[in-house]
Amino acid sequence: MLHIDRLQLGYGQAPVLHDLSLQVPEGQFASLVGPSGCGKSSVLRAVVGLHEPDDGAIELDVDGRDVGFLFQDDALLPWRSVRHNVALPLLIRGEAKRSAYEQAELWLERMGLVGFGDRFPQQLSGGQRKRVALAQTLAPRPRLLLMDEPFASLDAIVRRRVTDDLLAWVERDDITVVLVTHDLEEALTLSDRVHLMSAGPYADIVASYEVPLPRPRDLVATRTDPRFGRLFEQLWSGLAEVVDGGTDAAADTAREQESAA
């Protein structure tokens, strides 16, 4: 679905990513974890064309229109109604206003926001706004969904509910996902595969972990699975090495992982 080959990218003179390669097959839920500032978000921004890479190739098996992007901030238009915000991606691709609004209402209903269409984003709570952003992202039926720390700003309970809802749709529609997060638990509970990035500059992926837990997943049950604990430990020590010990040690861990798998 998504093929990234030797991606290089920087901000001005400052290098960020170096020779980063990543394969995400169709239907996989992949996570990118790594130390703060390593360039996790830049990978996603490069995929959707918000950041021009210096070198390397990014290939998608789907049209750019089939890619959804859920930002950390809800980034809703404050001056437009909730309904218009959700309908916006559909309107941009040329759907008639009426049908776009109808679909928007449907997605608001699915996100538990019946009757909120006429409100403005500022009149909603943080959790509600996140649901609106989710409805907005899912309404165009993306095949590939990129998410950049989407739930970081939510409190624990709201976060779990919204994540539950999201996971249900991802599993139902078999959406391919790349999630950027610094929350290792979140990465493990949601993903099929977790990729660990090295600290920047010149960051790349140093280790990848398979998460062989069954689907559909229940967020609580998943955490109590004994395999979850082992994986969490591995991932945690991998991250600690990346942060403290430079990339070589982590790369060794990665190789061990690969050969063990």
Binding site: E109, R110, M111, G112, L113, G115, F116, L124, S125, G127, Q128, R131, I157, V158, R161, D164, D165, A168, W169, R172
Partner: peptide
């Protein structure tokens, strides 16, 4: 559309009027 999503009562909508 019969996922838990559509039937579950939303948590954080109580702020409504």
């Amino acid at each position: 559309m019969t996922t838990s999503t559509s039937t579950q009562p939303p948590v954080d909508v109580q702020a409504g009027a």
